[in-house]
Design a protein around this nucleic acid. Structure first.
Lengths: 239, 239
DNA sequence: CAGAACAAGATTGTTAACAAGATTGTCAAC
DNA sequence: GTTGACAATCTTGTTAACAATCTTGTTCTG
């Protein structure tokens, strides 16, 4: 009776049926930790028993995720984790280059000491995960640092937009990233925080711009990566 | 038999049942033209017969609109056109100040002559609507100019984000705007285009930043405007 | 044996009915 | 006459069944 089918159909009494917003959160987290690679099929029935909710909730959650570019949703063909192309990857990082310099400037001008301390603790967690070789947490925390910056501005609009961009960046890095461990980042996050502590908005802006460009430079957006013709190129090359 | 109730329940055979994306577009347009004022109740049954679709489509469309801050969606209480508060208004314009300077800089660097001509034609349409005292078109076109700029970058991510921000700005202007006709804008749009034609990115950036701040300066975000306690303040004042 | 037609299974899209909750109008009691 | 409770109506939230579409496996034919 115990089989692979009932991995998580029933949950403890404490967890009530999650709302669509909570379903979205959990898929967001899974994508940011690169546990859900691009092109992963997300069938409704599978999600229903995973979360213990009805089909309606799942469909609404998928619609929200699709509206933010996290999943692709084709008519009559179901949902799958999005697989951004090169053009889309460039667009996402261009948008980040537009938003994040403004964000760190605001933080430099308006952050309270407690906010900066929280950012320092976050960087410490990043370092701990990296030392512990906990790749999953390290990846998630590295992206979440940028979210924390956005949240520190107190601007909910900016925070929501950046959250979408950072999550899509995780997909992009999983698809096009070349170096497995971007340990350059940790050092750069610390440098940004130092500039923020000195209230040096110009410096913080320069640093985060360089930081984003470093992340993008680690990608291979040149030619024949995995994009649309996944199986064709693989089979053609293997033959 | 002809009554106010059947304003658009049946449509010509050419128009098939619109998809949820089309429903979203039409509500977007209505909000941008300030035909749907904030706090307007949007009951599902009303939308169903307005668009001639089932309840499912309407609910999905409302969910999408809610995820972008265009409508408020409270549990068991239905949907209503969003009524941004002062904080939200400031956040939206702060986000625009972050995005649009980058957008015009990109346009200055990369736009083709045909793109710039299209922008010129758009400004001409704005002027025509204004001369014709067509307030509805004038308002919509004025906002759409910023969307055209974003689309000219070719960056779909930026374009989608700005679309949300511009639409929410329409709501904000309707709520907090003081001068009825912002005819200053037309002149400013033309100035931005001129800078773009000269490929002067710095100048274009400066102009659009000033332009956005002018729009925001026309708002009254000080104290007791219409926000949350709409009826209470009205009744209290009328007494 | 290859290839196409066909059929079975599965998945998504849609509709309808039902249940739960909120608002409004009414009525009785003080 | 006013206030409170109650009931009717309307609106939303949920579930279940049904229809349409796609995928996959089989079989028949050349």
């Amino acid at each position: 009776m115990v089989n692979s089918a009932d991995r998580a159909p029933e949950r403890t009494a404490a967890e009530t049926a999650p709302s669509e917003q909570q379903i979205v959160e959990r898929i967001y987290a899974a994508v940011m930790e690169q546990r859900l690679p691009p092109r992963t099929r997300l069938t409704e029935s599978m999600l229903c028993e995973s979360f213990g909710v009805g089909r309606m909730r799942v469909r609404r959650a998928l619609l929200l995720l699709a509206s933010q570019g996290i999943v692709d949703l084709h008519s009559n063909k179901g949902a799958a984790v999005a697989s951004p192309g090169r053009k889309e990857a460039r667009d996402v990082f261009e948008a980040r280059l537009a938003l994040e310099p403004s964000i760190v400037r605001q933080v430099a001008n308006r952050a309270r000491p407690a906010d900066l301390d929280a950012l320092a603790r976050h960087i410490a967690m990043e370092a701990a995960s990296r030392n512990r070789r906990n790749r999953r947490d390290a990846i998630r925390l590295s992206g979440e640092f940028h979210l924390r910056l956005a949240e520190t501005t107190g601007n909910a609009v900016l925070a929501r937009m950046l959250r979408e961009l950072v999550t899509r960046s995780s997909l992009i890095i999983g698809l096009f990233g070349t170096s497995g461990s971007p340990h350059c980042e940790e050092h750069e996050h610390a440098g940004i925080l130092e500039a923020l502590r000195r209230r040096d908005g110009d410096r913080a802006e320069t640093l985060i711009r360089a930081h984003i460009m470093h992340i993008e430079a680690d990608l291979d957006l040149s030619a024949a990566s995995r994009a649309e013709p996944d199986l064709l190129s693989i089979l053609g090359a293997a033959k």
